[in-house]
């Protein structure tokens, strides 16, 4: 089975964020980056499927130059090769344009299965996978908790709300967006890191026109400004040494909120 896993590089979770001078995005030069967590689960599912049924895992990433570290990490974990669609570092985020770039790269690979995480931890639109499937004319299923090979296709377990689930059977090729927690994540081994250095990464320069013209990003997402949200609820912040904070909190919970 030929499996393509789409991954994104996002600001690390504990990043302190500051708006860019134009206010339209955060200052990326001040944050460190990591693989989007749901995509790490998509990669894990892809690797385990390959190990079970044979084939190869290609890791595909659209992102600035820096994203090459995320591709290397995926190769170190066991992906066979990589494709890096390089975007300008200051490019405005545009989900539809990114989906077009990814779809174009996927088309020339003709995979059996495409996996993505269910959403990104930065923009969080939760739609890139579904849009890529539509652009490729492929079926999809989203928020997947389990994948099994069934005949010529797959039988997957979708997560619904409030503890409900549903099985869906789909023909190949198909795109699945993977829910976090589907499998236990592996760490890259020293041997894996060593091997990754010699694995091929094909670079497509989106900015320089390396991708087909209809796939080049044109209209950016019209983000007017980004900002930390205002608090709507009155919060009492407790400060001081841990013992003082604990004493204050206990006092408040017992005699003010009366919940303890």
């Amino acid at each position: 089975m030929k499996i393509i896993v789409c991954v994104k590089q996002v600001p690390a979770r504990d990043s302190t964020l500051r708006a860019r001078p134009d206010g339209k995005w955060v200052e990326e030069s001040e944050v460190s980056f990591e693989i989007n967590e749901p995509d790490a689960y998509a990669l894990e599912e892809g690797l385990q499927l390959r190990d079970a049924v044979g084939g190869e895992v290609v890791v595909l990433c659209a992102g600035a130059e820096r994203a090459s570290s995320t591709i290397r990490e995926a190769l170190a974990k066991g992906a066979d090769r990589g494709i890096h669609i390089t975007l300008a570092g200051d490019a405005a985020p545009d989900p539809l344009a990114i989906a077009r770039l990814l779809a174009s790269a996927i088309q020339s690979e003709s995979p059996d299965l495409i996996l993505t995480g269910l959403q990104s931890d930065d923009l969080g639109f939760g739609q890139t996978g579904v849009v890529v499937a539509e652009l490729l004319g492929l079926p999809h299923a989203s928020i997947i908790m389990q994948v099994e090979v069934a005949g010529d296709g797959l039988r997957v377990k979708r997560e619904l709300e409030d503890g409900w689930f549903q099985h869906v059977s789909l023909p190949l090729p198909v795109l699945l967006t993977i829910q976090s927690g589907i499998k236990k994540l592996r760490y890259a081994t020293l041997m894996g890191i060593k091997k990754a250095k010699s694995k091929p990464v094909h670079v497509i320069d989106a900015a320089a026109g390396g991708a087909p013209s209809e796939a080049r990003p044109e209209a950016a997402l019209p983000i007017r400004r980004v900002y930390p949200p205002q608090r709507t609820k009155q919060i009492q912040m407790l400060t001081g040494a841990p013992e003082q904070v604990a004493a204050q909190l206990l006092e408040k919970l017992r005699f003010e909120a009366r919940v303890l």
């Binding site: 955060v26 969080g124 997402l221 019209p222 007017r224 949200p229």
Partner: peptide, 11 residues
Amino acid sequence: QLFQGKWNADI
């Protein structure tokens, strides 16, 4: 919301 609810964006 962006960044898991840490920031907002006007679109």
